[in-house]
Computed example of a mutant assay.
Amino acid sequence: MGEAADRIVASADEGLARLLARTDAHRDADLGAVYRDRRVADVLTHLHAWHLLLEGWLLDDAAGRTPAYPADGYTWATLGDLNDALAAAHRHLSYEEARAAVVASQARVVALVATLDDAVLTSPDAFAWLGGDRLASVAHECLGGHCTWAQGLLDRAGVPA
């Protein structure tokens, strides 16, 4: 594994471990208007859903298909709608199910990222479907960056660290 993949995986693993320690201790915390009256479990399913998107992009690309980026029927301009659809699709999961899902999906995605060399991860030309974005940046945002977002959300909702 190259340095870029090492950094992505380390950030993801450390971020998720810290997040789960916090959510495990406050699984029933009220997030209120800070997260549109969603649950702590919904924070985890948000991460899980983005792991699934990243996994799909990587698997589609590896199979020679152009991934729907960010998702079929959505653009970056409709990101809010995509996030609402992802929340609705996973709303039925209990905290325990959401926790297990995010752990499993992260393990699969970091394993995929770990197979990529630094040149592929850091080149803005490696994946035409990314429109010049570097896969390292996209992967970080879907993994460790999302854990940072989740911690900030919990902070704003007043969930103890």
Score class of each variant (00 low, 15 high):
Ala10Arg: 12
Gln151Ser: 13
Ala101Asn: 14
Arg22Phe: 00
Glu3Trp: 01
Pro124Met: 06
Val40Asp: 11
Ala63Asp: 12
Arg36Ser: 02
Leu154Gln: 09
Pro67Met: 05
Ala100Pro: 08
His48Met: 12
Ala49Thr: 11
Thr115Val: 04
Ala119His: 02
Tyr95Met: 01
Ala71Arg: 08
Thr23Gly: 09
Ala126Asn: 10
Arg27Asp: 08
Ala77Trp: 00
Ala87Met: 06
Glu55Gly: 13
Thr148His: 11
Leu112Glu: 05
Gly64Pro: 04
Arg39Ala: 12
Arg134Asn: 04
Tyr35Phe: 13
Gly56Gln: 05
Gly80Pro: 07
Thr148Glu: 11
His46Trp: 14
Ala136Trp: 02
Arg91Asp: 09
Leu135Arg: 09
Pro67Asn: 02
Ala98Arg: 01
Leu82Met: 12
His26Val: 02
Asp118Met: 08
Leu143Phe: 02
His92Asp: 06
Val34Thr: 15
Gly32Asn: 10
His46Asn: 11
Asp117Gly: 13
Thr115Arg: 15
Ala100Val: 08
Glu55Asp: 10
Ala107Ser: 14
Leu143Pro: 04
Arg65Phe: 00
Ala29Tyr: 13
Thr122Pro: 03
His92Gln: 03
Arg134Tyr: 03
His46Tyr: 13
Gly73Trp: 10
Thr148Gln: 10
Ala161Ile: 03
Val159Ser: 02
Gly2Ile: 08
